[in-house]
Structures are given as C-alpha cells and as structure tokens.
Design a binder for these strands. Sequence first.
DNA 1: GCGACAG
DNA 2: ATCTTGTCGC
Length: 223
Amino acid sequence: MDLEALKKEQLDLKKNLRLIDRLKVENIRYIAGVDLTYLDIWKNPTEGIACAVILDLKNCSEVVEIKYALKEVNFPYIPTFLAYRELPLVLEVTERLKNRVDVFMLDGMGIIHPRKMGIAAHFGVVRNCVSIGCAKSFLIGDYNEPKNEPMSYEILRIDGEKVGYVLRSKKNTKPIFVSPGNNITCETALEISMRCLNGYKVPEPTRLAHNYLQVYRKKLLAI
DNA sequence: GCGACAG
DNA sequence: ATCTTGTCGC
C-alpha cells in the first residue's frame, strides 16, 4: 500500500474540517457511540464486527437504539492510518441507525493526529456530521499530567497548537484523550465527554458499544 | 538513525 | 484490538 498517497488523502480531507460548534450544547441530546472488534483476533483478524449505540443524554443511560455490522477487514493496523482499517465498518453500522443522532463518539483520535485526521475526524468529514474522538491511550502531543481526581483535565498541544484535552475520567486510572472530530470545538468535545462519564474510564456511549460487542461476539462464536 | 505509535 | 485469575487500592 502507498502510505504517502494516503497521507496526501488525509491532508486533502483536512481541508473540509470545521472546528466550530454546529450545534449548541443545550440542543445536543442524542449521542451515538461506535466501537469495533474482531471475531477471532488471533486466528482470524479479518472478520470485523461493529456496534453503534444511541444514548439519550438527558439521563446518559437510556439506550435508544443498537445496531451491528459484520465485514471483512483487510487493511492492517498502522498507527496514524487507523481509519483505513476501521472506517468501512464504522460507516456501515452507523448507516443502519434509524433514529436521530446529534453527535457521534468514536473510540480513537479526532484531530490529535499528525495530520489532524484521526478516525473520528475522518468519519466526521466523510459523513459531514458532528463527531468526537475519545481514545484510551496516547498517540501524539504534549501535555501535563492531569491531577489524580475525576474530571481533572489538561490541554494537549501539537506543535504548540491546542488540539484536545487529556481527561482523568476516573481516579487512579490512566486518562483518556478527547478531541474534536468535525463540526465541534475542543471545549464542547470535552464538555460532552465529561457529561457522558458514569464512573468508568470510558464514556457511556463507547463503553456500552464495547460491552454489547463482547456479548454479540460470543454469541457468534457459539454458533 | 532511533524510538514512539489510536485500535 | 483478546483472555483470565487473582490481587491491590480506594
């Protein structure tokens, strides 16, 4: 594969990024969490499974809709090119949702990326929707360690530019990395992510998508 | 050149 | 990204 060509594609997609709030925070109500796994990551790392869960932010626990999708995954995992591996399944599963979605939350980076085109930003540009990236571990950037208390956060910068936040979602737990995908600001992405926290490291939308995936996966393996 | 590196 | 049990800290 030609990674240089894909880099150019990412830089081209970047021109369509809109890092301003399309929605007022008070009007954001339905948030969809998306996650992905593989049927047998060791023997068969090519059978991907995706799950999308819509939550009502009014109580942050009422599940409005759940959808799944299965698809062959051929592109390998290469840091900074995750979208080329996972986006096809993410697009497929989100297209199956019938209910209203105000914001999509993906498991991965938004603009905390060498070319500001992490999977959440890529998805947001391709779908022209509002998206947020919530990653569980570090990829790139400079930041100070947030204090060891829930809701403590610090700015993350790349080349001196603010591109997201490092958020301590839970005490004695490594922080998560929050950044805008598309059509949203760093501040709103952080605020929405914080509002979705429910005592766990991972925000409810992607946490539930991940949990439902495990159940669905075991069900498939039992057949 | 070397190391680091979302899922 | 998965698996699995115990163990440790709040």
